[in-house]
Design a protein around this nucleic acid. Sequence first.
DNA 1: TAAAATAAAGATAAAAATATCTTTTATTAG
DNA 2: CTAATAAAAGATATTTTTATCTTTATTTTA
Lengths: 151, 151
Amino acid sequence: MLSKSAEYALRATIYIALKGSEDNKLGIDEIAKAIDSPQYFTAKILQLLTKNNGVVSSVRGPNGGFYLSDAARKLPVRAVLEAVGEDGIITKCVLGLKECSESRPCPMHDQYRAIKAQLRQMFEKTTIQALAEESAKGKIVINNRPPKKKA
Amino acid sequence: MLSKSAEYALRATIYIALKGSEDNKLGIDEIAKAIDSPQYFTAKILQLLTKNNGVVSSVRGPNGGFYLSDAARKLPVRAVLEAVGEDGIITKCVLGLKECSESRPCPMHDQYRAIKAQLRQMFEKTTIQALAEESAKGKIVINNRPPKKKA
DNA sequence: TAAAATAAAGATAAAAATATCTTTTATTAG
DNA sequence: CTAATAAAAGATATTTTTATCTTTATTTTA
């Protein structure tokens, strides 16, 4: 459905929104461990999120790390997808036809229309903050590990 | 959304259902041209569809080619996705979490539940034949070319 | 039965996605 | 100002996906 990049991007962003703040920035090692993703690769993805549209903020040096501004928290989830170039899921034809459109639809177009609209809704109406709040209520962002206590 | 393999698989299958029959088998060259896909790669995919679950039938030799049995026409579109290993779209978690489930949901789970159900419906309730009929009514399966006449 | 047609199978190549490691730059604390 | 810290940037490696080419096996027809 989504690429690994997109999955890591979403999970990392949610985690940062949940656990981080301007005066508690999170290190890439913590983030990667927490969401069970490859650290260096996740770092690259966070760079995208930082550069491409400011979903994530970062600062270097001691006590540096990643966090989300208040403005960023209000961004739709779609912003994360866009930053990693993965919003095709709500923009493209199921059959991969460039030509497919309302006036020149593919055989699945009519059926997919409503679904696509709902996917779009989900990704555009849901904010990052909203997902973080879900997560705070116990929704998981990790694989294979019970919510773990700090060392 | 779907891989190229899945897209080609769907388009090829629809095209074969539309234009082919047991006594008018279609050659790989015609199919690939018609759906605007790379010929050799499409051949590999049709092999999968032939072996993995008999969605497509084929015979070699003169007048050989690909066609769909009557039984195959009644298969759900999902069968095509399964043959190319791409049904994750209706089985997996949006965030890529193996752990995600009703009892241990991810932050998008509640919202995605309904959408996933509709995707599943679409792929399971729609038959290959139904798509071919849509196509017969003018729904496109190709990119960038007006319905072209034979040479 | 021989030749031609056609998909299957196998081998190889190219491109894209994923992953890791190293070096550089910015920031902070001392 | 220096040392330490942490992300950014760059380079490289690996894996997967996509694509192509070649050889083989099957089938039909002449």
